[in-house]
């Protein structure tokens, strides 16, 4: 477990560095001023949401092929963390919209797509809660995880087409002219958030494993105490 502790410190350090780069090192935006700094976390969160849902898809396919509970636990862990990140992505996007475009919500392609993504994976968590039997729960949520993931590029494309068809309401501020320090801050944010995702994933898997072990112990105990043989 020593490397786990070391990794936790590494994540802590990298988040600190990215905070420093985003808030102190990178210059304020010419047009948006200080509020532009939310952009670093917004991009990093949204990227991690996508990464997490890709992991859900891979775990779902693997579960249906191997039928071992480990893959289902990975799918669950990644869904939960992905929902947290995509929520942060949508919320920071909304705040960004408030200052860049003057409204809290704009049916802008990326923002709308993220919101649909959020909707699908919250639905996946709802589905998990509505199936008691563990095998069936794993199976059905794997199927929905696959269907949702296949839908992601279609959602992105259709929304992009849809918005490009209409007169563009908001364009100013959508274009960013990134200076090199800004690029560095962005890259650092993405890396540190990705490391954070991995750390959270490992912690969540550990908890799942402990829960499964506990259920195992309880069952064995029940069999030992009730069995005549």
């Amino acid at each position: 477990m020593r490397w786990r502790t070391a990794f936790t410190w590494l994540v802590f350090l990298s988040v600190e560095i990215s905070l420093f780069l985003a808030f102190l090192y990178a210059p304020p935006d010419v047009v948006l001023g200080e509020t532009q700094r939310i952009f670093y976390f917004h991009v990093a969160s949204a990227w991690n949401g996508l990464l997490a849902f890709t992991v859900v898809f891979v775990a779902a396919v693997a579960y249906l092929m191997k039928r071992t509970p480990e893959w289902d636990r990975l799918a669950l862990a990644s869904t939960e963390i992905g929902v947290v990140f995509i929520t942060m992505g949508v919320v920071t996007g909304s705040i960004w919209a408030r200052f860049a475009w003057g409204v809290w919500w704009e049916w802008e392609p990326r923002l709308t797509s993220s919101f649909v993504l959020w909707l699908m994976y919250v639905t996946l968590l709802v589905l998990r809660n509505l199936v008691e039997d563990p095998d069936r729960r794993a199976r059905l949520s794997a199927v929905f995880g696959i269907v949702a993931f296949v839908d992601v590029p279609v959602v992105f494309m259709s929304i992009r087409w849809w918005r490009s068809v209409h007169p563009v309401v908001v364009e100013a501020g959508g274009k960013l002219n990134l200076e090199p320090p800004m690029v560095l801050a962005l890259v650092a944010s993405v890396i540190s958030f990705t490391l954070l995702y991995l750390l959270l994933l490992m912690e969540r898997l550990t908890i799942s494993k402990l829960e499964a072990d506990l259920a195992d112990i309880k069952r064995t105990w029940k069999e030992r105490t009730s069995g005549v043989e």
């Binding site: 649909v116 909707l119 639905t123 589905l127 509505l130 269907v147 949702a148 839908d151 279609v154 849809w162």
Partner: peptide, 15 residues
């Protein structure tokens, strides 16, 4: 549960 599951997936079709 069907509409809950299906509507998010159907968004591209609706658009």
């Amino acid at each position: 549960l069907l509409p809950v599951l299906a509507f998010p997936v159907l968004i591209p079709a609706i658009i």
